Simulated assay, not measured.
Amino acid sequence: MIRAVPTPPLLNAPVLDPTVRHLYVHVPFCPSICPYCDFHVLTRKSGQVEAYLEWLEAEAAWLASQYAVELDTVYLGGGTPSFLRDAELEALVGSIRRHLGWGAGENTLEINPGTVSPARAALWKSLGFDRASVGVQSLDDATLKFLGRQHDAAGARQAVTALIAAGLRVSGDLITAVPGQPLDSDIHGLVGLGVDHISAYTLTVEPGTEFARRGVTVAEDDERAGFERTEELLSAHGFARYEISNYARPGQESRHNLAYWNNRTYLGLGPGAAGHYPAASVSEGNLTSRRTNPHLHIWLTGEQGEAEAIDAEEYATDALFMGLRLRTGVDLADLSRRSGLDVRARYAGAIATNVERGWLELDGTWLRAMPEGWWVLNRVVTDFLEA
Rank of each mutant, 00 (worst) to 15 (best):
G135F: 04
V205C: 11
P179I: 08
A121C: 10
G135M: 12
D221T: 13
G148S: 11
P207V: 03
T176R: 13
L174M: 15
S138W: 06
T161V: 09
T202R: 14
F129P: 00
V170D: 00
R131K: 11
D152H: 12
S199M: 08
V195S: 11
R157W: 08
Q150C: 08
S138Y: 08
H188K: 13
H188E: 15
E231I: 00
L203C: 05
G215H: 09
H197D: 03
G114S: 15
A212M: 06
V178M: 11
Q150H: 13
V191E: 10
Q137M: 10
F146G: 00
I198L: 12
T230N: 08
S138E: 13
I164M: 15
A165F: 03
R213E: 14
R120V: 11
G180R: 08
I164C: 05
K145I: 10
T217Q: 08
K145R: 10
G128A: 06
G114T: 03
G167Q: 07
D196T: 12
V178W: 07
A142F: 04
D173P: 02
D184A: 14
Q181P: 04
D221Y: 10
Q181L: 11
V218L: 11
I198M: 10
R131Q: 02
I198E: 02
S171L: 02
P182V: 12
L183Q: 05
A119V: 15
L147C: 02
L139C: 14
G194S: 14
R169W: 01
R149L: 07
E223H: 07
V205Y: 10
Q181A: 15
F211C: 14
G208C: 12
H151I: 04
R213H: 14
V195K: 07
Q150N: 09
V216W: 13
Q137V: 01
L183T: 04
D140H: 10
T230I: 03
T217C: 12
T143H: 02
Y201R: 03
A119W: 06
G172W: 05
V136H: 08
A154H: 07
G180C: 08
L193M: 12
D130R: 05
E220T: 07
I198Q: 07
A200L: 02
G148Q: 09
L127W: 14
T230M: 05
L163R: 02
V116G: 09
S185E: 15
Q181C: 12
A212I: 01
H188I: 03
L190N: 01
G172H: 04
G194A: 08
A154F: 12
D184K: 13
R214E: 09
A162M: 04
F227I: 00
E228S: 05
G192M: 13
H151T: 00
S117M: 13
G194T: 01
L203W: 04
R224I: 09
T161Q: 12
A177E: 07
V216S: 00
G226K: 04
S133I: 04
A162G: 05
P179S: 10
A159V: 01
L139W: 07
I198G: 02
S171C: 08
S199F: 06
L193Y: 09
F211L: 15
L163D: 01
L193H: 13
A225C: 09
R131L: 06
